[in-house]
């Protein structure tokens, strides 16, 4: 074996055998294509950066006035310099939580049914249906939620409140479920209703991600489980679920991100309030997105700045959730590869 020792004098630039680099394949057209793709990538980054910058700059005025109390104030009276996102941010999180709680079991069930149980013809139909469900705009879900779900949820909400009111968040402090003359509007337009509607909006997204991850469970491992005498449930639990775990978590996080940003259907359903309201069955809630959509129209310049600041908070929150989601998905995928 010859050892190659490069003295500084015989560096790569003046040595007889300079380091070789592969020439790029193709000519000008290829380079143009590559450049245009690169610029698309840069545009995306620029847009994200600009949005964040824009929100920060425009919200800075209000943030400077409110200081840290921006995070703790419940009221929203910007022109009186008494405003904060304590109500709307918690409202956002609560609506999103309700949505996730409803959407994830449903999405898991649908995804498992599609990938494991449905006969092939039905499978195609169901996949299309779920995709179609994702294509229905939020405003339609909002209409449905307001005119159909809102009135018909009352008995259920009332039943939960009277039977499970002892569970935190589920009770309504001053309600009288046994009083027939109790005004029923107390159960309408609540976090609960908004959450259910949002769950329909995000279910297809979660379902698609889960379905794809379930379908990735390799046939070899599936057959391995069957060959041991597993039932289909056993096979799903020992093979499909572990393989799909990343997709389940990632899909849920993506859904969470969407749920927190969902605007129009929430605006249509909720009765906006500006104080922290932890009872999810009680009428009245709020969310950052709904606040912005409801207020920006008639906002004074200073309120607009405050809305920008609220937007920035939502932007940061959804960004964090989505980053976490993609990190989880990527990590589990690579784990899958090394495991296979």
């Amino acid at each position: 074996m010859t050892t190659i020792v490069r003295t500084p004098a015989a560096g790569p630039e003046n040595s007889a055998d300079p380091a070789r680099r592969g020439e790029p394949v193709g000519g000008g057209a290829d380079r143009m294509f590559g450049l245009s793709l690169t610029s698309s990538g840069i545009v995306v980054l620029t847009i994200m950066g600009t949005v964040g910058l824009f929100l920060t700059l425009r919200g800075a005025g209000a943030l400077k006035v409110a200081g840290l109390e921006f995070l703790t104030t419940q009221a929203w009276e910007p022109d009186a310099h008494n405003f904060g996102i304590a109500t709307v941010l918690t409202g956002t999180v609560m609506i999103a939580t309700v949505a996730i709680v409803f959407a994830v079991p449903l999405a898991t069930g649908v995804a498992l049914y599609i990938s494991e149980y449905a006969p092939p013809s039905l499978r195609r139909l169901l996949i299309n249906m779920v995709d179609l469900m994702a294509a229905i705009p939020g405003v339609v879900y909002g209409l449905w939620g307001f005119y159909l779900l809102n009135p018909s949820i009352i008995p259920l909400a009332r039943w939960i409140a009277s039977n499970f009111g002892w569970i935190p968040f589920l009770g309504i402090a001053d309600s009288h479920p046994n009083d027939p003359f109790e005004p029923l509007t107390i159960y309408e337009s609540s976090t609960f209703v908004a959450g259910i509607v949002v769950s329909l909006v995000i279910m297809p997204t979660i379902c698609s991600v889960m379905r794809e991850s379930f379908a990735r469970a390799p046939i070899g491992e599936r057959e391995g489980a069957y060959a041991l005498g597993a039932t289909r449930l056993g096979m799903i639990r020992s093979v499909v679920m572990p393989f799909g775990r990343g997709g389940m978590i990632g899909g849920t996080m993506l859904g969470l991100g969407r749920a927190m940003g969902e605007t129009i259907s929430v605006v249509m359903i909720i009765t906006p309030v500006y104080r922290f309201q932890p009872e999810i069955l009680r009428s009245g809630t709020n969310s950052v997105a709904a606040l912005i959509a409801l207020r920006f129209d008639a906002a004074s310049p200073f309120e607009l700045s405050a809305l920008m600041a609220a937007g920035l908070a939502l932007f940061a929150l959804t960004l964090a959730v989505n980053f976490a989601a993609s990190a989880i998905i990527v990590r589990t995928r690579s784990g899958e590869l090394s495991g296979a």
Binding site: G220, E223, G224, A227, P242, R245
Partner: peptide
């Protein structure tokens, strides 16, 4: 399931449950 349990199978590609 009993039939498959009584008659085990080893496949071409090793397929332990990776998780």
């Amino acid at each position: 399931t009993e039939a498959r349990k009584a008659i085990g199978m080893v496949f071409q590609k090793p397929n332990p449950f990776p998780a």
